Simulated scan of single mutants.
Amino acid sequence: MRNIQIKDLMVPLTEYAVVKDDATLYDVVLALEEAQRRFDQNRYTHRAVLVEDKTGRVIGKVSQLDLLKGLETGYSRIGDLSGVTRSGLNPDFIRSLIKQYSLWQDPLDQICGKAVHIKVRDIMHTPEEGEYVDQEDTLDKGIHQLVMGRKQSLLVTKDGRIVGVLRLVDVFSEVCKVIKVCRI
C-alpha cells in the first residue's frame, strides 16, 4: 500500500467556508451554510469557517464552539479553563459557573441577535505552530499532530501558504477504510 499524503485527504481551500476578518458571526453562519450546500454530500460536513485578511491570507478559524462562546460574552470573563476541562468538569461546578457569570440567562433569540454585531476577528482562533502540516507530508505526521494536539483539524500548507484543511473526520474515515481491508 502506498504512503498516503496529506494532500490526498485535505479539503482544498476553494471548497472550504471562508470569511473576511471584519465579518460578523451572522456572516459565519451564512458562509458555513453555503459551504455545506456546495460540499460533496458523500463526505462529512464542515464544522468551521476559515478567516482571511484583506489580502486573502488565512489568519484564523471559527469553529462551532468558537461561535457559541462568542455569542455569550460571559465566557471571556471566566478565563482559560483548558487545564481543568481535560480532567472533566463535574455538574455542580458547571452550574456554579453558569450562575456566577450569568451565562445564557437571556432568551436564545435575544442572544443570537448579537451575531450581526460580533466581529469574527474578536472571537476567532488564531492557529499556533502545531496546527499546520505540509501537503507533501505523509498521513502519519498529520495523525500525530491531530492526536497530540487534540485538534479537530490542521491547516495544510504549500510553500508557506494555506491551501486546505486536514480534518480529523476525514483521517478517521481513511484509517477505518484501511483497517477493514487489512489482513488480520
Rank of each mutant, 00 (worst) to 15 (best):
66 D>H: 05
81 L>K: 09
67 L>I: 07
180 K>Y: 09
150 R>D: 10
140 D>A: 10
121 R>C: 10
79 G>Y: 03
121 R>P: 05
133 V>G: 03
65 L>T: 14
79 G>T: 08
53 D>M: 10
117 H>R: 13
55 T>A: 14
67 L>C: 00
149 G>W: 01
100 Q>T: 10
35 A>S: 13
137 D>H: 13
139 L>W: 04
178 V>M: 13
174 E>Y: 06
124 M>V: 08
79 G>S: 06
6 I>M: 10
106 D>G: 14
10 M>W: 01
32 L>I: 05
57 R>A: 13
177 K>Q: 13
8 D>T: 09
109 D>Q: 14
12 P>K: 03
84 V>D: 13
23 A>F: 01
109 D>K: 13
47 R>M: 09
11 V>D: 06
102 S>T: 14
62 V>K: 05
60 G>K: 04
137 D>G: 07
148 M>E: 07
80 D>V: 11
135 Q>F: 03
127 P>E: 01
72 E>I: 03
169 V>N: 01
77 R>F: 15
92 D>Q: 15
41 Q>R: 13
104 W>K: 08
140 D>P: 02
64 Q>M: 02
94 I>Y: 06
84 V>M: 14
164 G>K: 00
83 G>C: 03
39 F>A: 10
148 M>P: 05
77 R>Y: 15
149 G>M: 01
59 I>T: 08
160 G>C: 12
150 R>Q: 08
29 V>R: 08
172 F>Q: 08
179 I>F: 04
142 G>K: 01
26 Y>W: 15
67 L>W: 00
32 L>Q: 02
178 V>H: 11
105 Q>D: 12
134 D>C: 11
73 T>G: 09
27 D>P: 07
119 K>N: 07
153 S>Q: 08
15 E>P: 04
